[in-house]
Design a protein around this nucleic acid. Structure first.
Lengths: 343, 343
DNA sequence: AATTAGCACTCCAAACGGCTGAGTGCTAAC
DNA sequence: GTTAGCACTCAGCCGTTTGGAGTGCTAATT
């Protein structure tokens, strides 16, 4: 807590963290001296380590094991010690190569990038697709699938496509559907999706609607169509995480998978990142997610023009190669920003 | 092999399989006598077990353990011994409740059913969405996203929506795109998607096209748009499988997850099921999938009108509650058939 | 001839105990 | 302030023991 973090303490803390990131095993006083060029006796190092433990940066699994870094240590590390590397040439090429859109479908772009993040980082990749809500309305279409079943297709300015199956109370003819779509397309042009929702509600209140059956059902249909429901969260490379020694035990693994199934919680966290542009790092409990102790999350935002569209990142153990992964996430976000910005 | 499967042998084999399905532990001769009302001495049972082992129905992990059923035993069990239960009332209600389409998107329907299959069966749920290819063409739309980026939206008769981002060589105006779409919609009406592809190629050969730039680019665009790429395979409930004792060990788990990432192989297998309507069961190595030893797959086909649209099912350990899961899969397939059949 | 009781045998799994070595904290010397 | 020295701790490994579950074989029984 106090300013007693002299240079030597820092050096030693850094050495412990970096060794631990490599080996995943508790680090002892002698390991430090041999690996990094620190010319102090093991006794002195032990003294420093005891101080660091008291300050909450280190913990020991049991008396005769070495020390392992705490979340607080990682936090200090990324804030003060970390020298971020630049992305390696080969990785940069892979990222560039796999960040393409031609011939893919919209979801496919995000899924592929999530996949790529996982294989380049060797952890899990995560991409939150743009919130449909934050987008501008472009077009709505209705297609009659059956006597009382309609497919609504919604397209946003940025090209996200959503569809909804709607089962109205009574049958609506194809002609009528076309008219409805025309009416709505005119009405909603240029609004954001959240404005669209408000507008639909306003319009439904209005007097003239009450006397026009067609308009009323059009609005009702569209109201259902704009009901948000799909998550748009792509998590890939879960099998990667098996390679990490901390998950050799099946219990931990199970917890982690349960956590990944709670997509809503994750999504809420990522939504929070939208307001903080650039790279964000959540270490261990900082994410306030259940079953995510021992895991860290590195995110960055991607942008199109002036709009922050979404968030992507990497999930791995707190013992993560921050120096390598941070620039990967950063670079990928920039690439995605670039391919989403046309003209 | 030979017909030496008298009633007693069958009874004992059945007892072993059913006990093993419950406990996941090798079954000894005494366990059989106590559990099922078989009034024979353990010695006699041991003799029968030795015969069954010789015939390839049982295996013993080591001399002083009990016996476990082989794949062949499970196969015999489902073919000859199994008394399929009916679906429990509460389960039937859950299936019914979660098989709805109103308000969902098309993928959402299949994803939800996959999820439901996993939570009702306690294994993994799997749903292959209808192959776009096997569908009838309904409509194509082009939307200009940017100077050299177009969003193509394809809709099939059954309501599947696909989209593709296409980056053509040169810019195409919005007006032009509308014309192209009109031309293609007229040209391709009433064809299946696979016929569509052939038709596009034929048309591109034709003389008149060579002199009409617009038509030529329209065809080129649509050719790209109909390039199949999305898998449409929904696997849910992977965390469920952790509860199974055979996956307590992380190594097995890892293999299984690698297998699940090979979606193409799975998809090929499911495609094969399209030709065999109704319930299909693959036990252990019968699926011929890598890393799927020890796993079984129960599938059924779902239908709309006369067309077999797709396949759904449950993946679990070979030691699976077949008597319970088979009717669940069957019932779910029928429910999905029902909700896909409108009018 | 089929069934069963009896028995010797096998082998895994859990428990036990001793040993080792890595690592620590403390104290006294430098 | 730093370091050498030392006693102490404790997880992990290894070899041994023990117990029990289960088998296969043989001889007695029905």
């Amino acid at each position: 807590m106090d300013g007693d973090m002299n240079i030597r303490s820092r050096q030693i803390l850094e050495a412990i963290i970096e060794d631990y990131i490599c080996t995943a095993e508790p680090i002892g006083s002698s390991a430090i001296r041999s690996s990094h060029g620190i010319s102090l006796s093991t006794a002195t190092i032990r003294n420093v380590m005891a101080d660091l433990e008291e300050m909450g940066f280190l913990a020991s699994p049991h008396t005769s094991a070495g020390r392992i870094p705490t979340d607080k240590a990682y936090r200090f590390y990324v804030d003060s010690l970390l020298a971020v590397k630049s992305v390696e040439r080969s990785e940069r090429e892979e990222i560039r190569r796999r960040c393409t859109v031609d011939g893919r479908d919209v979801d496919g772009v995000f899924r592929e990038i999530s996949h790529m993040l996982s294989s380049v980082s060797h952890y899990m990749g995560i991409v939150a697709a743009p919130r449909f809500n934050a987008n501008f309305f472009r077009q709505i279409d209705f297609i009659r699938l059956g006597s009382r079943r309609i497919l609504a297709i919604l397209i946003s300015q940025s090209g996200s496509v959503q569809n909804r199956i709607i089962e109205p109370q009574e049958d609506i003819s194809t002609d009528m559907l076309v008219k409805m779509a025309n009416y709505l397309n005119a009405l909603l042009q240029g609004l954001t999706i959240s404005e669209v929702k408000r507008r639909i509600l306003e319009e439904m209140q209005s007097e003239k609607i009450r006397y026009d059956n067609m308009l009323a059902s059009a609005l009702k249909l569209s109201e259902q169509a704009f009901d948000e429901n799909s998550s748009g969260l792509f998590i890939e490379g879960q099998a990667n995480i098996f390679a990490q020694p901390e998950f050799a035990d099946a219990q931990r693994m199970k917890e982690l998978f349960r956590a990944m199934e709670q997509k809503n919680q994750l999504l809420a966290l990522l939504d929070g990142c939208l307001k903080a542009p650039g790279v964000n790092i959540f270490i261990g409990s900082e994410s306030h997610l259940n079953n995510m102790s021992g895991m860290s999350l590195i995110t960055s935002t991607y942008i199109s023009g002036k709009n922050t569209l979404g968030v992507l990142g990497v999930i791995g153990p707190t013992r993560m190669g921050y120096a390598k992964v941070i620039p990967i996430v950063d670079y990928t976000a920039k690439m995605l920003t670039r391919i989403l910005t046309v003209e």
